[in-house]
Design a protein around this nucleic acid. Structure first.
Lengths: 384, 384
DNA sequence: TTGCTTTACTTGCAATATAGAAATATATGC
DNA sequence: GCATATATTTCTATATTGCAAGTAAAGCAA
């Protein structure tokens, strides 16, 4: 554990810290920066110059009306100074996006995975990188997978790919001469939300994703929690309703059984005796179909209980919801809110539930964010 | 939130970091220290000298047999170089202990609180400080209370004392010319476990206390989580058993209803129709009394489920159990272990449950630890 | 227009902190 | 004793930093 301790204490050059602060906190005055970094204005001027010369930072020249004195020239990053590639791997597909320094999406492409063999997957990633490459090179590539990753390089365990101990980063770097970082998908998403998404400005918050599964990530003390625990999907089978349906692992009323798209479909299909899509379930509920309503309301209550449990035990006030399986909130938002309230100390601050509307930050962008964050630690050199 | 952010980024002088590292990691070689702090050996020598001269640090001279070369002289703190006072306030009592720099207990005293008036409580604390004072002055005084505390100075809310917004630190400092720090009791205990107790060496762990109530504290990234959330006792009414008894707030089967000493006694008393003490309950269970056994086994299961929930949602591998209400584990340890296993992903690391045997670190020592930690940030001057 | 005021940023300079290399201390092994 | 190994210290060149004084770019008032 003490080795982890030492590794955590990674030295960061002052100019890297400056660049990172500007990246996260947008156009920002030198005076504010100096205070945040605990440095003098003089030092700030000196640190900023090479970054301005190198083109990574620019001075914003938008005057505030009616201000006395010399107008401020806040610093900002030139978001298009670098380009990144984010790749999300699932069991059968790879989705790639290009992003700028702020993780804003450029272009996008998707490819099926011909197999789970490492060389096949690498070939698909290389292909995607070549297709999306333009005149600007990628500064780094982030890849996210569902499962455990160590050291940002090796996939220790990825159930959907059937992988154990696969050196993915090395394999991709061998083909593309660009730094590659691998991360667990939820950890990556949490990192993206922290720097660029709904978690901006919060030191502590949780991320819950609902889709094919339930994902759970945590940011504490302005750092993403990325222990080996983080990749396991520990929020995935959290017990929520002792009378609920069973999940595929045999847990009764766990978060997977109550919340995921397959489980919701399955429950409705069993009751109606015919196959239905998730969209159909939502539509049925809109039209007051009692089965769909009951299932979705139970999901709302379950999500509320999960959010309350997270807020209580992880001691966060903010919870970001993301994923493609949140459509049921249009029907069952009230149930969710009620369940949160019921499991929450009345003295405690109300839980701030933030809805990542229609995937504003997508899984692939999350992967890119990891690459951006790691790159920022060393990103103080000249223009590429 | 950004102001919290800035406050968190407290500057720490290198010599303070050095002193802290030595305090926590015991006798430690300069070379190891240099690596941990990211400094050169030369800098380390220069940093350590004033601390050695000042008497805060000493060189240990215990040779390792059979080692080649010049023998190492590891650095250690002179634990008795400073003395601290820790005070734990409950609704009716103040418990005070003196400790050295390593939070080891010196002497101890207890006083009833004549009232909840601030001046009465302050008078009791001053009294305790005077009684326990010896030739050595206190470097700082830590006070812990059940409730929310802000800024280590003001008790925002303490239900057992009926306090809201009470400036306790100022009031005590006005009488004793010594720095005073106030902290939530569970946060203080977590801090003590982190530096001096069973949490030593872990970057992430949770603390659960069972006694008159259930307390919950969290250490993440080597920092105690002490947001406003932390003082609320959010683990106190966590739902664990939908068929369990009610707590005084009307929660069915919450952690308070199943685990606390009063609840366990009440359950047995109702069934047996006579008053019993907690010790009697344990004895009854030892003698196979079915009521006591059922109640305690339910408690074991409940604690196991709570531990699993904490491990899953706070993403910790280690959980420290403390408090005077853990006696039931002698009877129901197996139930606890089984419940943890049941709610835990089989791929996840086994939860490491650490039992704070017989209050090795007490509540009052936790209060002292807060004083020690805060003091270490500035503790680089001469001998007192 | 012309200065005066206000705020934002920059530069010169002295103080401080740091690392690297060489030196010194203190043991073991032969 | 002397070579060897390891730990720590000293010496010195270099780098970083903050302070204080200076400069820049506006608005405002006569």
């Amino acid at each position: 554990m003490s080795s982890v301790d030492a590794a955590e204490r990674r030295y960061r050059a002052p100019s890297s810290e400056l660049a990172r602060e500007v990246l996260i906190h947008g156009p920002i005055l030198r005076s504010v920066l100096a205070q945040r970094l605990g440095l003098s204005l003089a030092t700030l001027t000196r640190l900023a110059r090479p970054l301005l010369d190198g083109g990574l930072l620019v001075e914003v020249t938008e005057q505030l009306e009616g201000a006395m004195g010399r107008p401020a020239k806040p610093l900002d990053v030139r978001a298009d100074a670098r380009q990144f590639l984010g790749v999300k791997l699932t069991g059968d597909t790879a989705v790639a996006v290009t992003t700028d320094l702020r993780a804003a999406e450029g272009s996008r492409a998707t490819r099926p995975l011909p197999s789970h063999e490492l060389h096949d997957v690498v070939a698909v990633i290389v292909d995607l990188a070549r297709e999306l490459a333009n005149e600007q090179e990628f500064s780094a590539i982030g890849i996210s997978v569902g499962g455990q990753v160590s050291d940002n390089r090796v996939v220790d365990r990825a159930p959907f790919l059937g992988w154990r101990g696969v050196p993915l980063a090395d394999a991709v770097e061998a083909q593309l001469k660009v730094p590659v970082m691998v991360e667990n998908d939820v950890v990556a998403l949490a990192a993206a939300e922290h720097w660029f998404g709904l978690g901006r400005g919060f030191s502590n918050f949780a991320v819950l994703t609902v889709g094919a599964g339930v994902g759970y990530g945590l940011v504490m003390h302005d750092q993403v929690v990325s222990t080996s625990q983080a990749g396991l999907g520990l929020g995935g089978h959290f017990p929520l309703d002792p009378t609920g349906p069973l999940c595929f692992l045999g847990h009764r009323g766990c978060s997977t059984a109550l919340l995921t798209i397959p489980s919701i479909r399955a429950q409705v299909e069993v009751a109606l005796g015919r196959p239905v899509s998730y969209a159909e379930v939502l539509e049925l509920a809109q039209n007051d179909n009692p089965v769909a309503l009951a299932v979705l309301r139970a999901a709302g209550t379950a999500l509320g209980r999960l959010i309350a449990a997270v807020a209580n035990l992880a001691m966060v006030e903010h919870v970001v919801l993301a994923g493609e399986g949140l459509g049921f909130l249009e029907i069952a938002r009230a149930e969710m809110d009620a369940a949160i309230l019921a499991d929450r100390d009345p003295e405690a601050a109300e839980v701030d539930v933030l809805l990542e509307a229609s995937g504003f930050i997508s899984w692939a962008q999350g992967a890119a964010a990891v690459a951006i964050q790691r790159t920022m630690d060393t990103l103080t050199s000249r223009e590429p």
